[in-house]
Design a binder for these strands. Structure first.
Lengths: 206, 206
DNA sequence: TAGATTGTTAATCGATTAACAATC
DNA sequence: TAGATTGTTAATCGATTAACAATC
């Protein structure tokens, strides 16, 4: 169902549109145009139109897009309706922060279990999520049919964790470490590399 | 000094190259080629070469790049030598996690103060950083000549905080909320939008 | 020498933007 | 009707990749 041929940049903009649609809906709007969305997000209307088209939304000339319908189409494309279950490995500060993040559940992601190697953390609950020892990951992932993994460990463990995730049948890895992960072709890695973001910010400031 | 005309994608790859150079240096290498770096990062050598060229590095045909020199050039371009001071606003779980993040100091960023509105947090220290009340931000930023701000507040406060940062003379904002920020043209915003990353991951898994 | 590698110019590719007819 | 807006095809732009001479 989910369109695999949407480009990454377009896909990344959809959640912004979704937020916008929700906001405009709350203002009582029934129909909205690409210009409405674009002006809020500082994007040119044609780009919004192209993206909505790729997402499968249809509007009416002169009228715009029906708000409720657009909300449904975007929600469907983004997978907000049926959240994806995920495991998180590494319950340091960042792991805890992501586990605590309430917005994920409304946005298609459900962190169902956490993993760590520290005996101080194993068996504890963080924000309602139980921490398991790492050696339980493969078995649990297979039994629960987990397809997404989040890595928030120290950099030096990242590749080992990725290997374990691959063995467990995980198909999408959200990597918060600055390490490049080697995985098979059928596993998608998204690198949330804070150092990359910093480079751009520091460069643009000076 | 820092080259403003490097493209964002290239700039984002530099920290990966830097890590790679450090790793190869520790393996005892004196000279490295684009092929060495590319094979570690699964990038084609020509892309590495173009990026290094844009960063100002020069190599020698057949020999490659001198490791120490490459390290110096990248460090300079990335601003790792003289860390940029930054303020962080919003000391929830994510704010705390970023404040605790030790790697930042080695990578050009020094978080020098935190801000929050909660009386429970103001006056406390988190990982050695003092939390100040929000109304002290403008004055402190101007006195300390702060040019970078990090926003880790709830979404609904994000625009207000951005306005305060702009008033304070901050020129680069690292926005961890899913909100689009309206700022003047001379202020650069980098959005670390977790929802955008999630869209891609969820789409690629299914 | 032969072969690997850089530097540099040209070609390709994909995303963004423009143009414009169709529509309500 | 006139004007705003969508849908769609074409043009532009910028990043990536290819080609190849120069070099050690």
């Amino acid at each position: 169902m989910s369109n695999q041929n949407m480009s990454v940049p377009a896909l990344r903009r959809l959640p912004l549109y979704y937020r916008c649609v929700i906001a405009l809906k709350e203002e009582g709007k029934k129909f909205i145009s690409c210009t409405d969305i674009g002006s809020r997000l500082e994007l040119v209307p044609i780009q919004v139109r192209k993206d909505l088209q790729a997402a499968g939304a249809t509007g009416r000339p002169k009228v715009g897009y029906e708000v409720d319908e657009l909300e449904t189409v975007l929600k469907e494309m983004l997978g907000y309706g049926k959240p994806t279950d995920a495991f998180i490995v590494g319950m340091g500060n960042l792991g805890q922060a992501l586990t605590a993040h309430k917005e994920f559940e409304r946005c298609g992601l459900e962190i169902v279990a956490a993993f760590d190697t520290s005996p101080l953390k194993i068996g504890r609950d963080y924000f309602g999520k139980r921490v398991f020892p790492l050696n339980k990951l493969v078995n649990l992932a297979q039994r629960m049919n987990i397809k997404m993994g989040i890595i928030t460990t120290p950099a030096k463990s990242a590749q080992d964790i990725a290997d374990i995730m691959v063995e467990a049948g995980i198909k999408g890895i959200w990597n918060f470490t600055p390490v490049h992960l080697n995985v098979p072709d059928d596993v998608y890695v998204h690198n949330e590399n804070f150092m990359s973001s910093l480079s751009v910010l520091i460069n643009r400031i000076s």
